[in-house]
Simulated scan of single mutants.
Amino acid sequence: MALHMIKLCVGCDTVEELLAWGHGDAGVGKPWILRTRQTPKRAVEMVDGGSVFRVFKGVILCRQPILHIETVGEGVHARCELSLDPQVVRVAPTPRRAFQGWRYLEPKDAPADLSMEAFGDVPTDLARQLREAGVW
């Protein structure tokens, strides 16, 4: 069973801002590189179908499938690079408290993917309010 990672999205307030930033940094269609200090001890489980779920202002809004995890550098300069699929998948807005760094996210706790055909282009604020009200 795949294991996921959850990480705060710092510097972007919306999924649209993340998309604009990511496409400008990596280029359209190329894998995104996410750098972290610590390499996950359970990296093998994460590469086998896992995703990075992103938290924007206290709400999980999207995920990106993990393609590859690699440790680069040595000693105190070692860092982890996660190659992410450029495809950003929106998920059901789910509240999440702030935390530092990243955390594992078990599949049973992961928000469900949103069907864009079913809901169209719902504004993020409205989606969050509907989720909090239990309507969505």
Rank of each mutant, 00 (worst) to 15 (best):
P40M: 01
P40R: 02
K41C: 09
R42N: 10
R42G: 06
A43W: 15
A43M: 13
V44G: 01
E45Q: 12
V47N: 04
G49H: 00
G49A: 09
G50C: 00
G50Y: 00
G50R: 00
S51L: 09
S51A: 15
S51N: 09
F53R: 00
R54F: 07
V55Y: 03
V55P: 01
V55Q: 04
V55D: 02
V55R: 08
F56M: 06
F56H: 14
K57N: 12
G58S: 09
V59E: 05
V59W: 14
I60G: 04
I60D: 08
I60R: 10
L61T: 04
C62W: 04
R63F: 08
R63E: 07
R63H: 11
Q64I: 01
P65M: 14
H68G: 07
H68R: 15
H68C: 12
I69L: 13
I69N: 04
I69H: 07
E70Q: 14
E70G: 04
E70H: 08
E70A: 10
E70N: 10
G73Y: 08
G73C: 08
E74P: 06
G75I: 03
G75T: 03
V76D: 15
V76C: 12
A78S: 10
A78L: 07
A78D: 05
A78Q: 13
C80W: 11
C80Y: 10
E81S: 14
E81K: 15
L82D: 02
L82R: 09
S83T: 04
L84G: 04
D85T: 02
P86D: 04
Q87D: 06
Q87G: 02
